[in-house]
């Protein structure tokens, strides 16, 4: 049974974000001094370009989530969260079925909801805000006071670095969890084509129509 889960914008947004975040990581940790790859000057320059591109993407994504009502997908729920954890810790080894079903109306499992919600209200704002401050940071000139003059570049950089480490850890876990779908590649396929093969799930043709209308 094939159902339509990820819409065109969603997929575009997801992959664009994936690309930009990885490029930001690659350049960002060079700016941090962890390694040399592009050369420092280039790394700084590219990081700024990717950052601005990413901010624009975020603005569009927020707009899309608000007008489509898709933001509700990220409202955390405690329902079934125990079951989801149990699945990842035990069930998955026994070939147990997924405790929650993926539909276009509820595409995230409870664990995803909580983690993504945390990202949207915590990590992304911290990275965005500290990033913007970093980007526009300017030392006060002589006899000049700046609105953000009291924020040192040091604390800005610390917040931005801490967020970056969390993002890298998230990326690793995220890449792995892709493989925990019905089959190893079913999640990946869904994010590319928008359609996912779902077993023992029989949605009425009505509800599917309804979903198409939502867009």
């Amino acid at each position: 049974m094939r159902i339509y889960i990820y819409r065109r914008f969603e997929r575009f947004w997801h992959w664009m974000q994936a690309l930009l975040v990885m490029l930001l990581m690659l350049t960002g940790f060079e700016v941090h001094g962890s390694y040399t790859f592009f050369g420092y000057e280039n790394a700084v320059h590219y990081h700024q370009i990717f950052a601005i591109a990413y901010l624009i993407l975020v603005v569009f994504a927020i707009f899309w989530h608000l007008v489509t009502g898709e933001w509700r997908q990220y409202l955390p729920t405690l329902q079934n969260i125990r079951a989801q954890l149990d699945y990842y810790l035990f069930g998955i080894f026994r070939n147990a079925p997924h405790p929650t079903r993926k539909t276009a109306l509820s595409k995230l499992n409870p664990l995803q909801r909580i983690v993504y919600f945390g990202f949207k209200v915590l990590v992304i704002p911290v990275m965005g805000l500290s990033g913007i401050l970093y980007l526009f940071y300017r030392y006060p000139q002589q006899y000049e006071t700046l609105p953000f003059g009291f924020v040192g570049i040091k604390s800005i950089a610390y917040w931005h670095t801490a967020g970056a480490f969390v993002l890298v850890a998230f990326l690793i876990a995220h890449l792995y969890l892709i493989t925990t779908g019905t089959t190893i590649f079913s999640n990946l396929k869904a994010m590319i084509t928008g359609y996912e093969e779902v077993t023992d799930h029989h949605p009425t043709s009505d509800s599917q129509k309804q979903e198409e209308v939502v867009i």
Binding site: H32, I153, K154
Partner: peptide
């Protein structure tokens, strides 16, 4: 007496950050 990107880092942020990444990799 100031923070210089690439030269400086916060010891704890860097070490806890690296620890988090290593922990994730091991868990995976």
């Amino acid at each position: 007496d100031f923070y210089l990107p690439a030269r400086d880092r916060n010891y704890w942020i860097d070490h806890i950050g690296k620890g988090l990444i290593i922990f994730t990799i091991i868990a995976v």
